[in-house]
Design a protein around this nucleic acid. Sequence first.
DNA 1: GTGCTTGCAAATCGTTTGCAATAGC
DNA 2: GCTATTGCAAACGATTTGCAAGCAC
Lengths: 139, 139
Amino acid sequence: MEAYQRLLEHNIKPSMQRIAIMKYLMTHSTHPSADVIYTELSPTMPTLSKTTVYNTLKLFAEQGAALMLTIDDKNVNFDGDTSLHAHFLCKSCGRIYDLPVPEASKSVEMYEVEGHRILEVHNYYKGICKECFEKRNID
Amino acid sequence: MEAYQRLLEHNIKPSMQRIAIMKYLMTHSTHPSADVIYTELSPTMPTLSKTTVYNTLKLFAEQGAALMLTIDDKNVNFDGDTSLHAHFLCKSCGRIYDLPVPEASKSVEMYEVEGHRILEVHNYYKGICKECFEKRNID
DNA sequence: GTGCTTGCAAATCGTTTGCAATAGC
DNA sequence: GCTATTGCAAACGATTTGCAAGCAC
């Protein structure tokens, strides 16, 4: 699907900046931070400002067009893939990987627990990723 | 159990400050931030510094004596209860509640997935808590 | 007295805010 | 022209760092 279409589907009025940021999210499954997106897009969009990147990502998250991940305490990360999946943060290299949600948890759908209305479910794992482990790249 | 004992069990050399912070965590299930702990302890420990609170909490987390929660993008929160449970963040009032992990997920014990070594599992829910929902206290 | 712990002040850095300039209908 | 969007610079605030002083064995 195109970035432009995706914005319309989430009731987001398209603009050059919004399309560029959505396209970046759709073509990079690296769970970038706002700063990374700004740095990457900046060369080809010299007038882009960091404020716009922050505003846009916040808007995407609010409209359900992207996920806001709080797995890393250093900064917030974004994911253009809004389907059900878990995330793994490598404590050594800082990369975030996608992981499937364990089969046993898939059936669990909760919208309310102990009176609290649940709007988002986050499944985070933290540890040492395969690459760092094999390289003994542990700090 | 006493805070002092708890420190020893986690190979943490006890000190006045460390005991006070551990005691605070053990008697408050409010998932405080470093700043909250500092503000609460400060009156009775006037010489306590924020740096020490940050250092101590980091040490506790490293030694497995406390959990470091990244559920809130505003700041990191700490939990003295290291047993298996989930967390719920109210997007309206910001409070963090403990929740049981769904029965179906309890059996899932993973230490390695797709080659990545898993050291921590975090189960976060976000939404509107019972109190805020009943009060229509939604922003 | 050596090494760990503490505390102050300053620095860092991700993120937000205020507000003026701009673009799109 | 009116409203929403963008962008710059400044502000903010949580956390970290450098380093000197204090404590414990």
